[in-house]
Simulated assay, not measured.
Amino acid sequence: MIHFVGDIYNIKTSNVAEFINAALKKARGYPISFLLDFIRENLSRWFLKRREDALSLTTHNTWGVEYLLAIRGHYADAMEVDRIDTWRYYVKGGTRNCIVDLEHGMCECGVFYIEKIPCSHAIAAALAGGIAVDSLVCPTYSKNYLFAAYSTNIYPQISEVQEVQPLICLPPDIRRKPCRRKKSRWQSWLEIARRKSKKPRNLHKLYSCSQCKQPGHTLPNCVS
């Protein structure tokens, strides 16, 4: 990943896999034909919902990017900008002073180059130079790209199933356990505590005697 020359986003494949497993949890105990139809219905509903959300956008970029630009623009108003040339600016303020290169989408803080979204330093430099902030955002975050990602329709299976040739298929030589099959993994005590919005219990509790109030022993072993 260090030598990867493309764009690296903050989305892990494991999180997407966990989401798909949770979405298909209700249908995993049914036959494979029902599972495939369940996946198709969910994908069709998700694609339709995201297409409608993309068409309802009144901004150039997606809602999440516009919200992020609004927050960063609030911090950019308190920064001082010194112009170096047409595209380069020296921005003072925030956690550190940075040199911003709007031509190549670079900032010394590194946020502008990684996220392809202007940081607070780049927004302050763009406002000082009279450059539109939306023009500095990568086109991938635009509403047109969002609509194009979900533009394909997913149709139901309406054609008749073709005749399947008979074929002997032996089951695998694996003996199934008599207990009920588990549909989800065992959660740790920390995950259960976070789900219940409670702090995890203290595993190393220091017991004390109820009679002499001294730690290290209990009442049956008290010498007082």
Rank of each mutant, 00 (worst) to 15 (best):
M1G: 12
I8F: 10
Y9K: 13
Y9G: 10
I11R: 04
I11S: 05
S14G: 05
F19H: 01
N21T: 06
N21E: 11
A23D: 08
L24G: 00
L24K: 04
K25I: 15
K26R: 09
G29S: 08
P31Q: 09
S33I: 11
R40A: 04
E41L: 09
N42G: 05
L43R: 10
L48I: 14
R50A: 07
R50S: 06
D53Q: 07
L55S: 10
L57R: 06
Y67N: 08
I71Y: 13
I71C: 14
Y75D: 10
V81Y: 13
V81S: 12
D82W: 07
W87A: 05
W87Q: 00
Y89C: 04
Y89T: 05
I99T: 12
L102N: 03
E108G: 07
E108R: 02
G110P: 01
G110H: 04
E115V: 01
E115L: 07
K116S: 03
K116R: 08
I117R: 00
S120T: 10
A122M: 05
I123G: 04
I123L: 03
A125R: 00
A125D: 01
D134T: 02
C138S: 08
Y145T: 03
L146K: 03
Y150D: 03
S151Y: 02
I154Q: 02
Y155M: 09
Y155A: 14
I158V: 13
S159R: 12
E160Q: 15
E160L: 12
Q162P: 06
Q162R: 11
L167N: 07
I174P: 01
P178N: 05
R181I: 10
S184M: 09
R185N: 08
R185L: 15
R185S: 12
Q187M: 05
R194Y: 00
K196W: 05
S197L: 13
K198Y: 09
K198V: 13
P200H: 02
H204C: 15
Y207R: 11
H217C: 06
T218D: 11
N221E: 12
C222G: 05
